[in-house]
Every structure is written in structure tokens, then in C-alpha cells.
């Protein structure tokens, strides 16, 4: 196995410092698990087996335990996704305001074709999610960390242009 595929630790240098700055905020290290997983996803875009093992070691947990937590929360990716990850809400309040049409438009304009698939150019992945908490601003979407309100099928192409 080449060194290129060998796992490179996340928690070194600045990221390590950021994690350690969190330790005094909780009485137990285990409480830093969700924050630690966010740091990994921020750095790498997804959470690999190697990252799970590293997080477990840093926090004094077992990889099995960390994996059980990672797979519980839907925002953590356990496999690589497109450069830009799009989450569109289709729960009822948005659903009755055209969320499914927005979803179709997103799949078309990103080139993804199907939910959960990454576009051929690796640029986008689109998934349906449950209520994003912006029901009065239907349809909301999250692109990476950007929360965009009031998306309509007509606006989709323009919105996507901003994401290379």
C-alpha cells in the first residue's frame, strides 16, 4: 500500500489545538465527540475508518463506539461526496410549496441524476433531508454551509453557478 493511501492524522497542529481548547468546556472528553467529528469533516470532507479510529484514540473511546455515533447522525458522511453537498428539504410544509419540483431541478442542473449520487464532474451531491427549520421560506436548501432560503426551480441554475 503506497503512502498516498496511508491515513494522515487530522488532529495535529492547529486542529489539534482547536480540539484541545474544547476539553475544558465539558466534564468528560467523550462530550467532545460530535465537535471532533465536525472538525474531521471540516478538514477532510468526510469521515473515514481511519478518522474514526483516530477520533476514538484521541478521546479514549473505541472505534466501534465512535462508529455507532457517526452512523446515527445524518450530517456526517462516511464516504466521499461531491465538492459541494446539497441538502434539500422535502418534508410536508415545504412539500406542499413545491419542494419536489425544486429537487427535480437540482438533480437536473447539477447533473447528478439521482439522489445520493455524485455528479460525473465530482462537483455536486444532492440528497433529500427532513425539515430544515425554515418552513416559512420554502424551499430551503443547504449547500455546504450556506443556507439558502426561498429556492424555486427557476432560481436553481443561478444559485448553482456560485459553486465551482
Amino acid at each position: 500500500m503506497s503512502s498516498a493511501t496511508q491515513y494522515q492524522p487530522v488532529f495535529v497542529g492547529e486542529i489539534r489545538a482547536r480540539l484541545e481548547a474544547l476539553f475544558p468546556k465539558y466534564p468528560e472528553k467523550q462530550a467532545c465527540l460530535l465537535p471532533a467529528l465536525w472538525l474531521v469533516q471540516e478538514a477532510r470532507g468526510w469521515i473515514s475508518d481511519g478518522a474514526i479510529a483516530e477520533v476514538a484514540e484521541v478521546l479514549g473511546l473505541t472505534p466501534a463506539y465512535v462508529r455507532g455515533v457517526v452512523t446515527f447522525y445524518t450530517m456526517y458522511h462516511t464516504h466521499p461526496v461531491g465538492r459541494h453537498f446539497i441538502q434539500v428539504c422535502t418534508t410536508s410544509p415545504c412539500n406542499i410549496c413545491g419542494a419536489e419540483e425544486v429537487t427535480k431541478a437540482l438533480l437536473k442542473h447539477t447533473g447528478c441524476g439521482a439522489l445520493g449520487a455524485t455528479s460525473p464532474d465530482g462537483r455536486f451531491t444532492v440528497i433529500e433531508v427532513e425539515c430544515l427549520g425554515a418552513c416559512g421560506f420554502a424551499t430551503p436548501i443547504l449547500i455546504d454551509d450556506d443556507f439558502v432560503e426561498g429556492v424555486t426551480p427557476e432560481r436553481v441554475a443561478g444559485i448553482l453557478q456560485g459553486y465551482k
Partner: peptide, 11 residues
Amino acid sequence: DESEPGTFKDR
């Protein structure tokens, strides 16, 4: 953790 469908006030 406002996630109840239909609710968007805490935001």
C-alpha cells in the same frame, strides 16, 4: 434543535 416540521421561530 428546532426540527419540528412547520416550526421556524427559534431560528
